[in-house]
Computed example of a mutant assay.
Amino acid sequence: MDPDAQFAYTRAMSEPEVESHLQRVDHGVLALADSNTSYAVPLYHHYEDGRLFFRLGETPDNRKAEYIETTEAATYVVFETEETAGPAEERGWSVVARGPIEQVPQSHPAYDIESINERFPPIRLFDEAHDEVELTLYELDVEQLSGRRN
């Protein structure tokens, strides 16, 4: 190891700290896999009572849904850094959640459109027409949850 490399020590966050960050920051990156190929996508989430939900707008050729089907354990990362005078003073935190991800049945109360609109920002459309997008809700069954901060 190069003796001139700079290091910043981190510490584990408590469960209440981790949950606080998941409730306060509503976006992160969901990592999925299909055999030896990975796919990561930035998403909004809703965290409530230990449950981590994602709302997706899916189209017929949607890669996210294909990867969700083949992923045994998804990883979701949320992080934030604070701007400082220099890299040595940088402060930040990260939360990592891992577990299987499944589509929530449309009969589930979380699928209520008013609840979804309260919990998530509007769906971002790119080149799709509004009527080509199907609203789907997924839940990550959090088997591992950890957080670190410095």
Rank of each mutant, 00 (worst) to 15 (best):
M1Y: 10
M1V: 15
P3D: 14
P3Y: 04
P3Q: 15
P3R: 12
D4M: 13
F7E: 13
Y9V: 15
M13D: 07
M13H: 05
M13V: 12
E15H: 11
E15M: 14
E17I: 09
V18G: 01
E19F: 00
S20H: 10
H21E: 05
L22G: 02
Q23Y: 02
Q23V: 10
Q23F: 01
R24I: 03
H27R: 14
V29T: 11
A31D: 05
A31V: 04
A31P: 01
A33E: 09
D34W: 02
S35T: 14
T37P: 00
T37M: 06
Y39F: 04
Y39N: 03
A40G: 12
A40W: 04
L43W: 00
L43R: 03
H45V: 05
H45R: 08
G50Q: 05
G50T: 09
R51G: 10
F54H: 04
F54G: 02
R55Q: 12
E58P: 01
P60E: 11
N62C: 11
R63F: 03
K64L: 07
K64P: 02
E66D: 13
E66S: 14
I68W: 01
A73L: 09
A74E: 05
E80Q: 11
T81E: 13
E82R: 03
E82I: 07
E82G: 09
E82S: 10
T84H: 03
G86V: 12
G86P: 04
E89Y: 10
G92M: 05
G92L: 06
W93G: 01
V96R: 01
A97T: 06
G99D: 09
G99M: 08
G99S: 06
I101M: 03
V104P: 05
S107G: 06
A110G: 06
Y111C: 15
I113H: 11
E114G: 08
E118N: 04
E118D: 11
R119Q: 15
F120D: 07
P121T: 13
I123G: 01
R124D: 07
R124I: 12
D127M: 13
A129W: 06
A129M: 12
H130G: 07
D131E: 10
E132N: 09
V133M: 01
V133G: 00
T136K: 07
D141G: 08
V142W: 00
S146H: 03
G147M: 01
R148N: 08
R149P: 00
